[in-house]
Nucleic acid binder design. Structure first.
Lengths: 209, 209
DNA sequence: GAGTAGTCTGAACGGCGGTTCAGTTTTGGA
DNA sequence: TCCAAAACTGAACCGCCGTTCAGACTACTC
């Protein structure tokens, strides 16, 4: 009843996809990364297609779960939005999402996965925008749904350039442009988060030096 | 000395890539579409890689050339920007650009092609923004380069959703959202173009009904 | 009308890689 | 200790293409 193997393989597949791309991801690559053999992989997944699609969906859920967890520790809409965009700009494997997009053009399963991802993401943003409007934190004249769509789309576009190594959009610039846009649209500044383990580490280091 | 065949094959390749995706584009598919055989295709292109990359670059140039041609007939910066975004929203094969993006993640040649495309595109926008600022048509407080980057990125993100069939972003909504953003950023309305053959056709039809 | 460069054909070759399968080891329970 | 289900392994199979190659066919020149 050990379902330990499946996530191992899915994680391995996610990594390989991100490195080599869906098209060039061989079952053998995934097997090596997971420390097994191709037939062992096919023991858990019917065929290559299922493996790849499940890996995409699984990676997506992983990202979302960890985000939701960290989100639970925050209360103010501004803080939550800060976390959402901070995570988007820094953490996730945009390469993987790009693979998902392109794959979704022809694969119905991937299309559905992508739809889930986007719906969840935009609803998440819209919810906190609405909350912030209700508390008076944000400009309340704009429609949360539209704001959410626009900001999500802008982020996709900018992150795309960054991921493709555009010299005009390095990681820091991506962050600036994103938050400039967010704050302009919301008509409010988003508070900095100081309970991030990474950031605290860096601050302590800087202070202690 | 007929170099008629090469463009025929390139056009065929572009169509096939757009339909099946780069990964699933077989030399045989391209050959059939172009009315020849696989070896005949390989007579003109060293190998599959070169064929695909040249096809991507060629399609890109085709789009840009036809745009430049139509652009020459307009003078006012506002009209030119209207045309640029109108064409982006309606004409081009976003599927092909998406294939280019993903391919560019691992292929140096495609990366270069993509860079050319984006540079050209952003510079084109920036130029007309600057012109419009100079004539006082547009709000002059923002940096043309940054405006260009933001609008191009937003367009990429929105068109991505539209191309993926997002029910929230149909063709008409894409158009509205794009021009809303453009006009908000420029602080000016863009004039409608009435010399578009398609649009004139539609208008006459509507009036005459 | 022979020669030549350019363009292509038909057929085959060869490798890569997904998938299958017949067994082998491992695990967990009676 | 024995058994059966679960989890594999090693090896082979096989289809799909990209690519090659030895010639044909065309067009054009001298």
């Amino acid at each position: 009843m050990e379902h330990i193997r499946k996530p191992q393989i899915l994680a391995a597949a996610g990594e390989v996809i991100s490195e080599r791309g869906i098209a060039s991801t061989r079952i053998a690559d995934v097997a090596v990364r997971a420390g097994t053999s191709p037939p062992a992989v096919l023991y858990w997944f019917d065929d290559r297609d299922k493996l790849l699609n499940e890996a995409l969906a699984w990676s997506e859920d992983r990202f979302y779960d960890s985000l939701t967890e960290r989100l639970a520790e925050l209360n103010a809409p501004g803080e939550r939005l800060r976390l959402l965009f901070e995570a988007s700009v820094a953490d996730p494997d945009w390469t993987l999402w790009m693979e998902l997009w392109t794959h979704a053009l022809r694969d119905a399963q991937a299309q559905e996965t992508r739809k889930r991802l986007d719906d969840r993401w935009r609803r998440e943003i819209a919810t906190h925008v609405r909350d912030g409007q209700a508390t008076g934190e944000f400009d309340a004249t704009s429609d949360p749904g539209e704001v959410s769509l626009l900001l999500a789309s802008l982020l996709d576009g900018l992150a795309l350039q960054a991921t493709l190594g555009d010299p005009e959009v390095g990681p820091e610039r991506l962050r600036e442009l994103t938050f400039d846009a967010v704050e302009r649209v919301l008509g409010a500044e988003l508070p900095e988060l100081d309970d991030e383990p990474d950031d605290r580490g860096r601050e302590l280091l800087a202070e202690g030096g």
